[in-house]
């Protein structure tokens, strides 16, 4: 892990991976969309509206994966004081927020024709909305202070405290009565989705992951450069102050 502590080395590795991530994202999303919209059957009861699942579920997964990554980076920052950890947490927050937003809106578009309502305050939907606000809170805190270190510490604590929401989201449909149905893929007994529908779902999920990797690398580059600029500027201010 500490091999990545050197930003120059991290950047070299990240830039090497970037074109592959981009190519994988393009290929997987193209294949996923083909299967999602064209080469997969309508559901026996949800008919064509099931195709929204191929956006809604992968974005839900990514919203949660991003947050777990953010929590992990936050732990690395607070416990191991890994120099890049705060920057990576900052880098991934907006992407996670975007995925969660997509999940909530596509969920509403799917819920209206199937359930009969755009929204319900059940445990699954409410906890996902909370996740969205946790992301916004993280982004706000990380930028709230003049001293970035204080902002990062506050944001890291928020990320870790909010991490208790992840098992709540996952198990909400099992622990309580909810309008949202139980899990179809990650459950005991195997997936309850026909293979013809599992294929587009998994392709889109993989494509979203590759996309996330690509965006994360770009954002990490931006954060690292910005941090270096900040350091140089602080040094200049310090030097100017001493030169009087």
């Amino acid at each position: 892990m500490h091999r990545f502590a050197n930003p120059a080395r991290f950047l070299r590795m990240a830039n090497a991976v970037l074109p592959y991530a981009a190519a994988a994202a393009a290929a997987l999303l193209a294949a996923g969309l083909w299967f999602a919209l064209i080469a997969s059957p309508p559901d026996y009861q949800q008919k064509d509206s099931v195709r929204i699942m191929y956006i809604h579920v992968p974005s839900a997964w990514m919203g949660m994966v991003c947050y777990a990554a953010m929590a992990l980076f936050s732990a690395m920052a607070l416990v191991w004081k890994h120099p890049l950890a705060d920057l990576l947490a900052r880098a991934t927050a907006p992407v996670g927020a975007a995925f969660t937003f997509i999940c909530l809106v596509t969920g509403a578009l799917w819920g209206k024709p199937m359930w009969g309502t755009w929204w319900a305050w059940d445990a699954r939907l409410t906890s996902m909305l909370i996740l969205f606000f946790l992301y916004l809170g993280h982004m706000a805190l990380a930028n709230a202070f003049d001293d970035p270190a204080r902002g990062h510490k506050a944001a890291a604590i928020l990320a870790l405290v909010g991490a208790v929401n992840l098992p709540v989201i996952k198990f909400s449909v099992d622990w309580w009565n909810t309008l949202h149905q139980p899990a179809s893929v990650a459950k005991m007994g195997g997936p309850s989705i026909d293979p013809s529908m599992l294929v587009p779902l998994l392709l889109m999920a993989a494509g979203f992951k590759a996309y996330w990797l690509m965006v994360l690398i770009l954002r990490a580059r931006a954060e690292i450069a910005a941090a270096k600029v900040h350091t140089i500027r602080m040094a200049q201010v310090h030097a100017a102050g001493q030169g009087e």
């Binding site: 059957p41 309508p42 559901d43 026996y44 009861q45 949800q46 099931v50 699942m53 199937m114 359930w115 009969g116 309502t117 319900a120 309008l179 149905q181 139980p182 899990a183 179809s184 309850s192 989705i193 026909d194 013809s196 529908m197």
Partner: peptide, 14 residues
């Protein structure tokens, strides 16, 4: 409101 289950299958399979 209708609450559907977590099973997805094409019409032919059903």
């Amino acid at each position: 409101l209708a609450k559907h289950d977590e099973n997805y299958k094409p019409k032919e399979v059903a």
